[in-house]
Computed example of a mutant assay.
Amino acid sequence: MKNSLRLLIAFISIGAISCTDDVQDRESVSENAAPVLKSPTTLNLVLNHDFPNDLATTVVWDYAAYNGTQTVVNYSIEFAEAGTNFASPTVVATTTNKFKTFTVGELNTAALDAGLAPFVSSAVDVRIKSTVGSLGSMAQASNFVTLNLTPYPAWPNWGIIGSATPTGWDSDTNMDYSLSSHLYSITMPLIGGQAFKFRLDDGWSVNFGDNGNDLTLEGNGADIPVAVSGTYLIVANFSTSSVGGMAPTSYTITLQ
């Protein structure tokens, strides 16, 4: 019995020593080489809201390298305003692969999330950041490329068209949308003695006019007259309207 007990204690002691040695001999993880961004190579992209499921671009990079025990490496694709040295980057995608494809819709969302204005070509720096573990430690940042992106709004695109506008009845002038107030607005020159209307997505299938010239809009309503030439602030609250039912909505027009 005593011999058996001695053997058990010896066995436990050997196991403990082996475990300790294993922990001491295990190599810790450390940075080795940052990921290398290889593409995109097309640096000017105008995104078209008519084709949200089309391929926009593919971001490709070489894997990062870490010394020590193998572990999962996570990759984040970061966008930042060009020239800011990624002072306030926006993470637009994460993956464990070494590539990420973006549809037009996905890249448009990424651009808007990064603060890019719709219908404007804006320069954005793109890079890859690698980290290890669930806590995202030991970050390594890649080189970067600069893209010129022109996103479209993720909200309905309302514009103004008419003989009173600089482009006449040939094309719309897009209005700005406020995420906080949910109002559309624009400051623009208008020609006295002429008229304008509001329409959706540069088409006539959904448009608003003002039948009584009383600052209330109706679907397919009358052209809105402009009495005096000048620069006007126009604000419209389309959030109260029902596009399908053409419910009334309000607007204001103020000479500046």
Rank of each mutant, 00 (worst) to 15 (best):
S239P: 00
N48W: 05
N108Q: 08
V60Q: 08
T41P: 08
A164W: 07
A87K: 10
Y66F: 15
L116T: 00
Y184E: 02
D172I: 13
P156L: 09
S181L: 09
A64K: 00
D214V: 09
V228E: 13
G162P: 04
W169K: 01
L233I: 09
G115E: 09
F11D: 02
Y63Q: 03
N143M: 09
P151D: 03
N97L: 15
T69K: 15
S134C: 02
K2F: 06
T146S: 14
D25L: 14
L55A: 14
S229V: 02
N213P: 04
E78Q: 15
L7M: 08
Y75I: 10
M1F: 12
E27F: 00
S163G: 15
I9A: 15
G133M: 08
N85P: 03
S239M: 13
N213R: 11
N157C: 11
N148H: 14
D201T: 09
T252N: 01
Y184F: 11
L215C: 13
Y232T: 08
V124S: 02
A110L: 08
S18F: 15
P153L: 10
Y75Q: 01
L55T: 13
A222I: 06
A87G: 11
I9D: 06
T41A: 14
Y251D: 02
F51V: 06
N211E: 14
E81L: 11
T249L: 06
L55M: 14
